[in-house]
């Protein structure tokens, strides 16, 4: 069995959207209703097998962006993929996710990412209009609806990103990069 391929994955988004909860659900199958803010970076690991390839995902859960914390370039550098997270019940968090993608610029240019619209368990309270999501999907963004609370869409979220990272890695190998 070859050594698993190590991949750095960053979780990015506004505070309170559920980045840490998504990681905990994925890594430990746990959900805690209480909101526990993240300071700095939280590192977690999870091994996944995608298309018979074993990946060791190093999950960099970056503190939510606000006036109290800003993402450091160094935290994102070297990432193989990232997950943008928005809270379906807070329309502003989608706008923030979109602008973060642009702000991060060079360190994340060309690397795979997936947009998770979290809190699918409260879909009735969602503020984000379907038209906004359709618009992003039309521009090529991969979007998934997730619920860290129920686990819906969480495995699929990380698996989708892992598969994209593998494909990207293979493409780069073919291109000799």
């Amino acid at each position: 069995m070859p050594e698993p391929i190590q991949k750095k994955v960053c979780m990015i988004g506004s505070y309170g959207v559920g980045k840490t909860s998504l990681v905990r659900r994925f890594v430990e199958s746990i959900f805690d209703e209480r909101y526990q803010t993240t300071i700095g970076v939280k590192i977690d690991r999870k091994r996944v097998v995608v298309d018979e390839t074993e990946l060791n995902l190093i999950l960099w859960d970056l503190a939510g962006e606000d006036e109290l914390a800003q993402i450091r370039d160094s935290h994102v550098r070297g990432a193989s993929g990232f997950i943008l997270v928005a809270d379906g019940c807070r329309a502003a968090t989608l706008e923030r996710a979109v602008s973060l993608r642009q702000l991060l610029g060079k360190p994340v240019a060309g690397i795979p990412f997936v947009l998770a619209i979290n809190k699918a368990d409260r879909a009735a309270d969602w503020e984000i209009p379907a038209s906004s999501l359709e618009e992003l999907a039309r521009t090529g963004w991969r979007l998934l609806s997730t619920s860290a609370k129920t686990g819906d869409g969480v495995e699929s979220l990380f698996e989708t990103l892992a598969r994209s990272m593998l494909t990207s890695m293979q493409d780069r190998a073919v291109d000799g990069i």
Binding site: Y15, G16, Y35, Q36, T37, I39, D66, L68, A69
Partner: peptide, 13 residues
């Protein structure tokens, strides 16, 4: 520090 930030973010939420 974490508690102070937590309070500020709880309020924000």
């Amino acid at each position: 520090r974490k508690a102070a930030i937590q309070i500020a973010r709880d309020r924000g939420l």
